[in-house]
Amino acid sequence: MTATTFRIWRGEKGNGAFADYTADITEGMVVLDAMHQIQADNANDLAIRWNCKAGKCGSCSAEINGMPKLMCMTRMDELPTDKPITVEPMRAFPHIRDLVTDVSWNFEVKKRIKKFTPRPPDAPDGTWRMVQEDVDRVQEFRKCIECFLCQDVCHVLRDHHKHDEFIGPRYFVYSAALEMHPLDTADRLKDLKEDQAIGYCNITKCCTKVCPEHITITDNAIIPLKERVVDEFYDPLMKLVRLVRGKPRS
């Protein structure tokens, strides 16, 4: 057991300061365990958002030593303990209290994206047929646990505050899951280009790096969507040429 110092951001509505606490670290502990120990022993009112403690719900997002991570999946033995470990709330969203931020913007964005719209059923009993190969890539996107770490790290949101114009990586992944769903018939390309500003993304891949589900956000979701937008709106001639040559769309 080793005593480790945590430098935790405490305060309300963006006003606050770091405060130091000590936790006893034992084998296999994660940062969330340390936060719970501090909460139980020294700071009953320390605000933390968490649910499953198994990396499945995406509630305990925070910035640990400056890196956006899930507290429940960050092991203590992967962090240097010779200096205090900083734990801060996500910085791309309005602060509520201590480690908790107001992520309600994300839920509002999702409502604006055209919902799943399936083609008529394939079989008389009202069911569809899809083969595994065709659903593999959509299943990758559907692994998303909505932790919003990708939104937190995205500079368009974090540094440029374009929340009113831009929907962020999470919702490009969501849109990609719908656009590439074998049954879906809705067209979201105009929305992606105009209301959702996919063009602001300059593919720095920060979102991919922080994704705890290891979704290849940039390469598999955002870039193919960008290509579809380009094909649809900027390059009708090349689209025709490709059609003739038979080169498939992304």
């Binding site: 799943f116 069911t127 899809m130 769903h181 049954l183």
Partner: peptide, 18 residues
């Protein structure tokens, strides 16, 4: 379960696509 598929769920598939 079928209703979930109609709402967008993507279950693993059998060889014949069910």
């Amino acid at each position: 379960v079928r209703e979930l598929e109609a709402w967008g769920a993507v279950f693993d598939r059998t060889a014949d696509g069910r």
